[in-house]
Design a protein around this nucleic acid. Sequence first.
DNA 1: CTTGACTCTGTAGTCGGCTACAGGGTCTAC
DNA 2: GTAGACCCTGTAGCCGACTACAGAGTCAAG
Lengths: 167, 167
Amino acid sequence: MRNAHAHTRAEGRAARGAALRIGEVSRRSGVGIEALRFYERRGLLGRPSRTESNYRVYDETVLERLDFIRRAQAVGFTLDEISEILAESADGRSPCRHVRELARRKLEELDRRLAELRRHRAELARTLADWDERGEQEGHVCGLIEHSTLDAPAPEPVRPKRTRGSK
Amino acid sequence: MRNAHAHTRAEGRAARGAALRIGEVSRRSGVGIEALRFYERRGLLGRPSRTESNYRVYDETVLERLDFIRRAQAVGFTLDEISEILAESADGRSPCRHVRELARRKLEELDRRLAELRRHRAELARTLADWDERGEQEGHVCGLIEHSTLDAPAPEPVRPKRTRGSK
DNA sequence: CTTGACTCTGTAGTCGGCTACAGGGTCTAC
DNA sequence: GTAGACCCTGTAGCCGACTACAGAGTCAAG
């Protein structure tokens, strides 16, 4: 009734009681099965109980937890940070202070990252404009970047530094 | 004379003529030795000539090229894109049209990325503020993300999508 | 003739967040 | 009794841009 072709044996049992198996959790949360197992390994989901045949059995609170994970990711926390937070709160300790601290640092990082991106955007836009003016001659890469206009690219080794984003 | 403790046999030969060896290129460009070899494998530097003992020998134009690479990276091109551009221009073909196209797309991508980051920043800032108001009680992760305030985190699998940046 | 700075090749590891197998077992509807 | 949907474990691969190392050769100065 919920999803047309999702009425195997699964649905009857798990309609809206408690026991969910991994596939259902995946369907309901949008998190892939492999990702769920991966989260478990990473300590983000604890160990779910098992059926006799060793299938994972979740209760519905896992959906909230996954939601939390997604939201936390969306604002830029890494899985490691998230699992730290979750571990702390599972311990009874309030992760407040810690989380707050993390969040503040994240915010700063985000600001730095934003500033950087804005700079890049500006540079790129300028290059393109610049380039619409003069023709297509000159410079073996037609002036894309190579004549000045731009600031010196700093002698540091340009490292990746991934910043997480939803999507 | 240029750098205090950089006056091994190296410097004498390469003071400001032509033949540079990899270590000097690295020092002068700020690009690590391993990175230089890596670029070569990736087709960004062509194959330099060699001494009898098989040492790479560069001439000074490599420094410009490295500069170009860095600038291109800084505005968001990947190494693959850069090597494509370089290959084209080495071929005599002007990579203009292509580069322009790439640049336009990069710009769009950058804009998307910026918008995304701004959203994240806003969310995070809101969460923090929100959270300064009410006390430290409630919600097992003290309300960090889990109660509403924020928009739904979309059911898509949150994928990395790295965007390059200098630093 | 040794020391030590430099170079070479080739392979493997890093980060983060997954995804994709391979090679099984389980369960149930037909 | 069998097809096929589901589940298990464990390992390997992916992206991007490097970095790190092992094990060897080269070269000039003391």
